[in-house]
Amino acid sequence: MTAPWRDTMRRALGADGGRDGVPMLLAVCDERPNRAAADEDRPADGRAVADLLDACRDALAPSARDDDLGVVITLLATVARHETEQIGHETQTDHEAGPA
């Protein structure tokens, strides 16, 4: 499991942000009354991102300190790159399938 995360990390850290853009993770929390309870998918989405971050950390930096910002930034960039590549792959697959 380490190799895929390591390869993704290399692509994330080696990318030219000016040319390729900067993949990012975005989390939005709606704190208005009764909104959190109305949207049951949000906790599952957040748990999925947390699970990805845990898997990435376990593979790349299992002994890193929790407050090591360099590691945190690297993990966030790596998981953002992973998610961006997944979306790109899904979009590419959708286009290859043709119109429905």
Rank of each mutant, 00 (worst) to 15 (best):
R47P: 03
C29D: 08
E90G: 11
E83M: 13
E96Y: 10
L60F: 07
G88F: 01
D7C: 08
M1E: 04
R32E: 06
D66S: 15
L26M: 12
E83F: 02
L76G: 06
D45G: 15
D67W: 00
R19E: 01
D45T: 12
D68S: 11
I87D: 15
G14S: 11
H95D: 11
G70A: 15
R10M: 08
T91R: 06
L76A: 14
L13N: 10
D7P: 13
A61R: 11
T2M: 14
V72N: 10
A15V: 04
H89N: 07
R57G: 10
D94W: 05
D30L: 11
D94L: 12
P33G: 05
E31G: 14
C56L: 13
R81L: 01
L53A: 13
H89S: 09
L13G: 13
L26P: 12
R10E: 12
A59Q: 09
N34T: 02
A27C: 10
H82C: 13
V49D: 07
A27W: 00
A3N: 06
G88Y: 00
A50I: 01
D94C: 11
A27D: 04
L53I: 12
T74S: 12
T78K: 00
R19M: 01
W5I: 10
P23W: 03
A97G: 14
T2N: 15
D68Q: 04
R65V: 03
T8F: 04
G98T: 07
R11S: 05
A59T: 10
A61F: 09
A38I: 01
P33I: 02
P4L: 05
R19S: 04
A12Y: 01
A36L: 07
D67E: 07
G18N: 06
P23F: 06
M24R: 11
L76W: 00
A64V: 11
H95V: 14
A55C: 05
D51V: 06
D39K: 02
A48M: 07
E31L: 12
D39F: 03
R65I: 04
R35G: 05
I73G: 12
A38R: 03
A97N: 12
S63F: 08
G17S: 14
G18I: 00
A97S: 13
P23H: 08
G14E: 08
D39A: 09
A38Y: 00
H95S: 14
P99M: 06
T78Y: 04
R32L: 08
E85A: 14
A59L: 12
L69G: 14
A80Y: 03
D68G: 11
T84G: 05
D67P: 10
L53R: 08
D54L: 15
L60V: 07
V79T: 02
E96W: 10
E31D: 10
V28Y: 08
R6C: 02
A80G: 10
A77F: 00
C29V: 09
M9L: 09
T84C: 08
